[in-house]
């Protein structure tokens, strides 16, 4: 596990995003146990308080839950994970669209370009 940190953003947010990606792609499955605060802080070379905060925020978003004495686990609620995927995607889509508009593309043109591009990948 390694993250390339861009220290402009608060570290805990970066770690959260990293974890979220792993949850969405299924690399970390529902019910899996996340590394302990200490383990993760050592692996990433980050202050343990930062990891603590990451887990707290993830818990606030209902993505993980903590069982006292056992550790922190990913939620088994598949709906939450689906919603997360949609949310993270929509952020990307929003910024993609606004950047394309900035280049002068109309909505139709944007849809065309995306259709062509994705057809190629099939």
């Amino acid at each position: 596990m390694s993250i390339k940190f861009d220290d402009k953003l608060p570290i805990y947010i970066q770690i959260m995003n990293y974890m979220k990606k792993k949850i969405i792609t299924g690399e970390i499955n529902g019910g899996d146990k996340l590394p302990s605060v200490r383990e993760l802080s050592t692996k990433l070379r980050v202050n343990p308080n930062t990891i603590q905060r990451t887990y707290q925020e993830l818990e606030r978003e209902n993505l993980v839950f903590t069982q006292r004495g056992m550790g922190t686990f990913v939620t088994e609620d598949k709906q939450i994970v689906k919603n997360l995927k949609k949310d993270m995607a929509s952020d990307i889509i929003e910024s993609f669209i606004s950047e394309m508009k900035g280049l002068g593309f109309s909505y139709d043109e944007i849809a065309e370009v995306v259709k062509d591009r994705t057809k190629k990948e099939e």
Binding site: F5, D7, K8, L9, P10, I11, Y12, L44, R45, V46, N47, N49, T50, R53
Partner: peptide, 29 residues
């Protein structure tokens, strides 16, 4: 990344201090 808080010091006095993450968020740096 190891720090909770940071203190900037120059000429024998504190110029700026605060929580590291909060400063990152606030200053976007």
């Amino acid at each position: 990344r190891v720090f909770d808080d940071v203190v900037f010091i120059n000429n024998g006095e504190v110029i700026l201090s605060g929580n590291a993450e909060a400063l990152r968020e606030e200053k976007n740096k």
